[in-house]
Design a protein around this nucleic acid. Structure first.
Lengths: 341, 341
DNA sequence: GAGTGCACCGTAAACGTTTCTGGCACGATC
DNA sequence: GATCGTGCCAGAAACGTTTACGGTGCACTC
């Protein structure tokens, strides 16, 4: 005898009553409820999730899919762990748990997503690093699974999203450099089709125009989102005859590689090339000269993601009457010495 | 009509036959199997995991619990993402999926573990950053859930583990520094009760002895495992009257903070203080002077973890007849310029 | 031509839970 | 005193799947 039956037999009541008592139903006497709860704690009983899911049709879990392979994930441990923490906190208030679903490098992300949906492992999903056209979104919509994306996409649909303020970062970076007199401002964008690259580049262009500067395609550097990409960026810049005087980065780790490559050519950020980095992170804080970049609270972002997702789940929509959330997440400029050139 | 019934009705055969066909049972004709598989693909059918788990008593998923709170995991330079990739690859060969279970900073890890076990969400578990006494292990053993730990622990038990070669790193670092003539070699160890700290310190002490050097408690620095900890370490060293001439680090990000703090005092690693770092990572590769540290393949480590876990699961033990794996994972010295002092 | 074995398939039970339905006991109401 | 309402609980159905069991038709054997 196992599970709820064992508990019921031990208390000499029916399993139905045990279930109602534990689930806070009204038609149970307070006395009985107390006995059940105490016995459950004493015997270490907790309802089997499979039985529960089968009957109720939901799993009380939310998935967060990450792609380990592509540098399109454009993120690292430190980014994700911070966000997870916030999401988990937001969900825990409703007894939902977060499970992270990592898609290995050797697996197709869309197929992986389909498998996870078919498994009915989670009630809702969060996906990050959205592509310009993201087939994962099509799959999620076809499955009618509530979801939110961290990052926008050109894929049609009415789904909720939260996106970092890439446009604002690019604009403020260009404004700042232009105000300091720079006229040849380069930009780094991802070499794949991740959506933020388009947003970043568009905003960069219009900021140039707004500052009366011409757009020069030779100043757009497509590099992988990694330190290697930053190194390559530095290499490409150093190899140019007519070097830009400043560069705006779109990914946090680019600054590391760029600094190193500049150093190898005897160049100093902030003196020979003005650099504005992207996200402030553990590594960027220790660069010399200090990096001008942008700050955000990962935990707050995670909480906002969790709450926006809850708002899109029918069972919680009344608690979070925000409708479909579409939100640009602000980032705060942290001045450093790297853009003093 | 949903699920397997819909598929069976569409094919005009019984649900039992559909199930047997999809699960590769023998007593179904090849012709029928083909039809079923094709129809399943066409209709996007995949068995509901809740029903499956309930019947079979397992979930075909493995959990990897990480503590978002502990400072050992707060900023770890893509350590986890690399390991996940390997684990996932190893498990995928047996149609098992990896789900990562992040324990939020505001939740007790042991309670979280108990909740996850009670949910019957996974068939086996991986835990990392084991403490000297780790109650999560007790909980796992009481639940009779197969598990493996990444890191050892003083907790009694016969469970499998894989541990990075902290002892070897400390010994080789001390040997190398002693051979270079250093006589006052400091060491950084974590300020919490994570197990690797004890291993690291013990090995450091015996290596001193082996090299005929005295042990000086004043040269043991207990600092948090973070860049902040490294900064604090640098601060403490700079404040000493009789400074050590070398220091051995136990955590990858310490080097970043240490470099910065030394710089603030006008000191240069490799000239004023010999530094041997721990794990080579994206950040450490960009330090100047280059850091002497140790290398390992995270993906291979993950694969080994996955296979060792499979070996401890009754259903897969015959495929992986390795018994209970207890293994020190080697790390390779990467010479740099930081220990030339 | 009855018996035997085999390949294939349908039927139904079982997994652990929640929830619907019904029913008992008791007090209140007219 | 019959009726009604209410508080509480037992019983059973249902969720979607796998699997033990039994049965049918066919080929083959003596």
């Amino acid at each position: 005898m196992k599970g709820i039956r064992r508990l019921a037999q031990h208390l000499d009541i029916s399993i139905g009553t045990v279930s109602r008592a534990l689930n806070g139903r009204s038609d149970v006497s307070e006395e009985t409820r107390r006995r059940v709860i105490e016995a459950a704690a004493a015997m270490g009983y907790a309802p089997n999730q499979a039985g529960r899911s089968l009957r109720q049709g939901n799993t009380n879990a939310v998935g967060f899919m990450i792609e380990l392979g592509s540098d399109a994930s454009s993120n690292n441990d430190n980014f994700f762990l911070g966000v997870f923490d916030g999401v988990q906190s937001a969900l825990a208030r409703h007894h939902l748990d977060l499970v992270v679903l990592p898609c290995a490098t050797d697996e197709d992300p869309t197929q992986y997503m389909q498998r996870m949906i078919a498994r009915h492992l989670v009630d809702a999903m969060i996906i990050s690093a959205t592509h310009r056209r993201d087939t994962r979104i099509d799959v999620l919509q076809a499955a009618r699974l509530p979801f939110i994306t961290l990052g926008r996409s050109a894929t049609e649909g009415e789904h909720p999203w939260i996106d970092l303020d890439f446009a604002g970062v690019a604009r403020r970076a260009v404004d700042r450099l232009a105000a300091a007199g720079h006229r040849r401002i380069a930009v780094a964008v991802p070499s794949n089709d991740i959506n933020l690259g388009f947003v970043f580049l568009d905003s960069y262009k219009s900021a140039l125009t707004a500052n009366g500067l011409p757009f020069d395609p030779a100043l757009v550097f497509r590099v992988p989102s990694s330190e290697q990409g930053g190194y390559q960026l530095g290499h490409d810049i150093c190899a140019m005859g007519d070097r830009p005087s400043a560069v705006v980065l779109n990914y946090e780790l680019l600054a590391l590689g760029l600094y190193r490559r500049l150093g190898e050519s005897g160049l100093t950020p902030g003196r020979d090339l003005a650099v504005i980095g992207f996200r402030e992170g553990p590594a960027s804080r220790f660069l010399a000269p200090t990096l001008t970049c942008f700050r955000l609270s990962l935990r707050d972002l995670g909480i906002a993601l969790g709450e926006a997702l809850l708002a899109s789940m029918p069972a919680y929509a009344e608690v979070y009457p925000q409708g479909i959330v579409r939100r640009i997440w602000p980032m705060e400029l942290v001045p450093g010495e790297s853009d003093r050139a």
